[in-house]
């Protein structure tokens, strides 16, 4: 089952220009996996400075995109928690970058959940462009309900 941008926005608190998931291609709560897509248009705000004349998607933006896709996986696996609109925050990231991502390229992110509990999630992400791996990451993120702050 795919998700459109409105459904994505119903889960993710981020908004443009810091929303880095355009479409959710597949959600499988049985195997704890999500496949999501982000196309980095040439007009993205960071290309102007990163780098002048040689635009590349910053690695931290790729991490953020994969983290946002991880939140979508969490919300699909824990809908009763996501419905409470909790705060999500990154606890730890281990990442590697294989190839640069250029303007106009579509990044397909596959997130595999390793553990999803009421107050946290652990996941592994792989980002690809045209079938080639551009980045990988492992995430641990916390989930805090607003009434528990």
């Amino acid at each position: 089952m795919s998700w459109d941008i409105e459904k994505i926005k119903s889960v993710l608190p981020q908004r443009e220009p810091f929303l880095f998931v355009d479409e959710v291609l597949r959600v499988d709560t049985g195997s704890f996996t999500v496949e999501a897509k982000k196309t980095f248009s040439p007009g993205e705000y960071f290309f102007k400075g990163h780098f002048p004349g040689n635009p590349i998607v910053p690695g931290v933006i790729l991490i953020e995109a994969m983290a946002q896709a991880s939140i979508i996986l969490y919300a699909a696996c824990k809908p009763e928690i996501a419905a409470l609109k909790p705060d999500y925050y990154l606890g730890k990231v281990k990442s590697e970058f294989r190839q640069p991502v250029r303007p106009g390229e579509a990044v397909i992110m596959e997130i595999k959940g390793l553990k999803m509990v009421n107050n946290a999630g652990v996941g592994q992400a792989t980002a690809k462009v045209n079938g080639s791996v551009v980045a990988k990451a492992e995430f641990i993120f916390g989930v805090i309900r607003k009434d528990a702050r």
Binding site: A120, V122, I140
Partner: peptide
């Protein structure tokens, strides 16, 4: 709690 869940995930 983040490290605790990391331990659990690694264990699993």
């Amino acid at each position: 709690s983040m490290k605790a869940i990391e331990i659990v995930a690694a264990f699993e």
